[in-house]
Design a protein around this nucleic acid. Sequence first.
DNA 1: GTGAAAGCGCTAACAT
DNA 2: ATGTTAGCGCTTTCAC
Lengths: 347, 347
Amino acid sequence: MLASALNLSPGTVSKALKDSYEISAETKQKVMEMARRLDYVPNPYAGGLRKRKSKTIGIVLPVISDSFFALAIEGIEAVVHEKGYHVLICLSHERYLEEVNILKDFGSGRVDGVLMSIASETCESQHIRSLLEKDVPVVLFDRVCDDVKTARVSTDDKEAGYTATEHLISRGCRRILYLSISESLSISTERLQGYRQALTGHGLPVEDKNIILCTGNAEQMKRTIEEALSQGRGGPNGHGHRGPNGPERGDERPDGIVASVEKLVTPVYLACKALHLSIPGDVKVICFSNMPQASLLSPALTTITQPAFEIGKAAACLLFKAMEKADFDLGKASSILPSVLTIREST
Amino acid sequence: MLASALNLSPGTVSKALKDSYEISAETKQKVMEMARRLDYVPNPYAGGLRKRKSKTIGIVLPVISDSFFALAIEGIEAVVHEKGYHVLICLSHERYLEEVNILKDFGSGRVDGVLMSIASETCESQHIRSLLEKDVPVVLFDRVCDDVKTARVSTDDKEAGYTATEHLISRGCRRILYLSISESLSISTERLQGYRQALTGHGLPVEDKNIILCTGNAEQMKRTIEEALSQGRGGPNGHGHRGPNGPERGDERPDGIVASVEKLVTPVYLACKALHLSIPGDVKVICFSNMPQASLLSPALTTITQPAFEIGKAAACLLFKAMEKADFDLGKASSILPSVLTIREST
DNA sequence: GTGAAAGCGCTAACAT
DNA sequence: ATGTTAGCGCTTTCAC
């Protein structure tokens, strides 16, 4: 296209555009000039076909409207853009089957590498292994997966779960609810393990009825949480507040909540409100969240915050290392970043 | 690749895969079978090159970690995915030059159409027109731009600005601050116009010193807001609260804030806290925001909410109409969706 | 019903 | 220093 306008061969134009030493300054001048005039940009797919690279990386996420994921994308974008690559984003909507289809599509040459955080439905990883077999490097972040030999970037979720729970215990909580959104997700199970360890470590019982799986939409989650909070508050109309004299002997009502993901913040607060439970008076709440407005909530929310942007960045960097040198072993390249506990009014 | 494995010509394989009538059931069977076995997916770029379509649409945004944009992407993704297209996301980081580079790149055949919300720095649209000239359809959403003849999808920002301001007036505010993040952005100027009209319409003066441009990071914004809120609070230590007897005669202190974008929520709340101003006692606050936790803030925030998901969807639908029939005139296809006022404690 | 051939827009090796 | 050629992986006429 440029070539015909200039009466030059495409080869010459191609070289001129890349400032090759074999082209005369004069021709380069002409080519550049014309390129500017025609606002010409080479078709990346044509070149990519030839070079067998797409220069794009695929991101697979369950959702975007979540402070953690939105920030993680920005972290990824920072390094991808710097490397001159592009970013293709696909959503699994927490569905295993959609995730499978996306990865299958990514095996077509559409992307040179994949960054992914797995769906809550997913508890199997054959689809990931299939992709790896096609030599498409994959780096998992946040919601990772043990049974696949590739790099993982996340926080130490077990430790974070421990820290969160211990914090509640130090605040006097004895019957602590753990709210999860999946029974298989790494973040859920790891954080749960930390929760268990903290309870056990402090001589408190771990009770199944305090481990709550919250699914469905926000309204359904709220109902699930209300139900859990109503435990041990005997009598037919068990929704009354506790007496004015603080916890009564034998009161089995939960007095603390570890919410394992940000999505649970609203349901938790609404459930407490509906039950007329005061936070932190009746129930103390800590949540894993990257919400920038956590400190503005009523009451201000104690959080475990993950370095979302940094996680995205680190994952992307690992991916590039793998794409740049084929012998780089992602299998032994995982990285763990620190999360931070920010204590606020809710505890 | 499949072809060689089957000893068939690529043409035959291609047709078989698309279930063409000219291929025998038997061969189709064999091809499908082998495709499954090898987990084969055709390279989309090769086909795209031939058909001169990329089947991907480009999204240009200033940021992702913002409730509105994150939701808008999900709306876009819903329709793009349904159409069998893919989504390439590029961030302008509010920079005009990055936006220009992205659009230039998008003129290469990388995308078949573009959805975009312009950067706060942008106040010129030649780059958009250049792209349109290359027959890449563009639909603007939310942060639109008047001087380019293409479709726009947004809310009625002038009306929303009016509604927000009138609401504050109805709550007794007389000295209302308008907080913007740009002097050229459509959302800023339109909402500002509504603000002016509401003031004028209710016999209140429009004062330049009440129209505040907030730039920089959250900390800088907070300082700007503090300064603005300190207006008319005379005396050397002008930071004290107002007297216990309510507004004094001649008090020039602002008593209301219209924050034109979500990013301003935190700075506004922090500024009020720093100045020991109570919301809504001393200052009433309304903000354009899609934060799911607005009702949990302290105090709960009165918001103007935009139908972000729907805006994304509508924009994508228009874009597809334009891509599907070349004679579809985007110039006269804009659409305006309703935003909603949710009154909470902050007013 | 199947194959051969051309071509999408580019790059890279190989002439000239 | 420039041009020619082949080929990336696919689709699509057009022959057979």
